[in-house]
Structures are given as structure tokens and as C-alpha cells.
Design a protein around this nucleic acid. Structure first.
Lengths: 154, 154
DNA sequence: ATGAGTGCAAATGGTTTGCAAGGCC
DNA sequence: GGCCTTGCAAACCATTTGCACTCAT
């Protein structure tokens, strides 16, 4: 089980301190779990379940509050799949744009698209609509290769 | 107050009948309200409020059920702004792709982007990730021209 | 000792569901 | 008669909030 490296902890502590927040054991454990489950896009409830193994007294409300806070300060970001609950993923410091997601409507697998590809489109829209774009959310719904191979779907 | 034209009613009736559903007065009134409020992106609750003026006995549950049904058969489509409730807009029969939305984070205005612009990107992703894209959702968050002109935001 | 952070339980609010009654083929 | 549809009220469930308590600085 990989834990937070000391450089990661430093970075986290600084991000929090910048806005006047503290790095509590609970907050640390939550970030730890999110990092350890990178790519899994955990829901708040799932984070709660996992965090309890190393922080048994933690309350669900704390997880909700923390996850909101971490989103605010830009350590993690919310991913809405519109299935009734919010999911979260870490933001890597090298990332300067939100990546996109391919969502398989058959098996619910989520594939990340790291290529940006949206830059020229954004420029065009900013000009045409006189709108300053600060962020974006791009999701593609469809059928992944495994589900297509399985033969049931084309 | 524009009402549904007879050709629109025919199209709607057929879409419903195809799947074995009936065109009830409630369903008709709901579609009517959605069309009359095109561009407003009404929430279910807002649709309910408006529909009651011409259908006072209608229940909120009926609106929820209808809106779900109309989404299923492709007459309207859901727009999630992740603000805790679902909004709906009609799909025009000429549209073969979902259009995009610019969302002003200051005044919550929603601007529609009819240009597709995503076609080449989809082709590229389909090939690279071996993923059959069926639909997409693209939202840009930022600040609209009026809010920028007002001087408060840059 | 002051204010931030927490755990718990209760409240909130959008959406869904169970059910009895109504309406149409 | 059977089935779809509806209205109502209750249930659901993710998230938020109030509050008393704890804990660092």
C-alpha cells in the first residue's frame, strides 16, 4: 500500500495553508485514499468506506466537508457522471486542463483521455461568443472495445 | 402563446406510439410548456409550476415520470448543470448531435453553441481508444460578455 | 482561550415508488 | 376486462447543517 510521499504531503500542506486550513489526520487519510485509488473515481461514500479502515471514528459528514474543501483548493476535482452521486479524482500538478472521460454505457467503465484536443475549439468559441472560458467538462458516452468484442453490442 | 402545431402533435404522437405509449393531456401539456420555454432550460419543478396553470390537478410525480419518458424516446434531453436538479430541452428533428453549452459562473446564463466542432475530435478518439462514441456532453464554464463588461470580473 | 475541525443526529430537497382510482381500447 | 396512466403520500438517498465537544496554537 503506497502512502503519501513526504513531498506530496508538503505540497498538500501548503495548498491548505495558503487558504488558512489545517492538515488534519482525517484530511490526510482522505487524500491518501483518493491517491491510492487513482483511476477508480470513488464516490464520497466509497471514500468514506475505505477511509474508515485507517480512521474508524471518522464521520461521513467530515468526508463530505473535506472532499468539498479539497475541490475548492484545487487538489482534487469533482467528476459528475449524473448517476446520482459525485466522484472525485486527484489533479496532478502538471495538468493544466481537465482531461476528458469516455463512459461505457454498458459496463460503466471510465476511460481517461489525456490528450487535450479542445484548445483550438475553445479559442474559436471564445471569439465567436465573446465568452471567457475558464474550465470545461467533456464526456463521451458509448461502448468500449471489450463490450463490443463480447458480441452483445455493436 | 404559441401552442403545439398539429404537425408537431402528430410527430409527438408517433414517437410515443412507437414504444407503446399514449399521448395524454398531461404529456401534451408538458411538451407544450417545454417548447414554449425553449432556451430557458427549465427544471422539472419549473415545468411543474408552469404546467399547473393549464393542468391544475397534475401531480409532480407525473411531471417527473413524463420528462423521463420523453427523454427515453428522444423527444427532449436532459441537461445536467450539476446544481442539484435536472433541466430539459427539446431536441429538434434536424439535430443529429447534442449541442454544447456555455455556462456563466457569475450570472448562471446558459448560451447554446450550435456549431458541432467535435466531429474530427470524436473520430480521432474512437480510433485511438477503440471506443464507439454514441453521444457526448460538452460544457464550458466561464464568464459571459455582460458580466465581464459590468467590470466586476475580468 | 480562541477559533478551526470533528462526529453525530437531524434536516433538507430532488427524485422515486407503492397503491388505489380513473380512463381508454 | 385489462392495461396504461395518474395523483397522492410516503419512501429514498445523497448531501448539508446545527451543535456540542475536542484540539491544537
Amino acid at each position: 500500500m503506497t502512502k503519501l510521499s513526504s513531498s506530496e504531503i508538503e505540497r498538500l500542506k501548503n495548498s491548505l495553508k495558503e487558504k488558512g486550513y489545517k492538515l488534519t489526520p482525517q484530511r490526510r487519510a482522505i487524500v491518501d485514499i483518493i491517491i491510492r485509488n487513482e483511476g477508480k473515481h470513488l464516490t464520497t461514500e466509497e471514500i468514506y468506506d475505505q477511509v474508515r479502515s485507517e480512521c474508524p471514528e471518522i464521520g461521513l459528514a467530515t468526508v463530505y466537508r473535506t472532499v468539498q474543501l479539497l475541490d475548492e483548493i484545487g487538489v482534487i476535482c469533482k467528476l459528475e457522471l449524473d448517476d446520482g452521486c459525485s466522484r472525485y479524482e486527484i489533479i496532478h500538478k502538471e495538468e493544466n486542463h481537465r482531461h476528458h472521460h469516455l463512459i461505457c454505457t454498458k459496463c460503466s467503465k471510465i476511460i481517461e483521455v489525456t490528450d487535450d484536443l479542445l484548445e483550438p475549439l475553445e479559442k474559436e468559441i471564445e471569439k465567436k461568443y465573446d465568452f471567457k472560458i475558464l474550465n470545461h467538462s467533456l464526456k463521451f458516452y458509448g461502448i468500449c472495445s471489450e463490450c463490443r468484442k463480447s458480441g452483445k453490442y455493436k
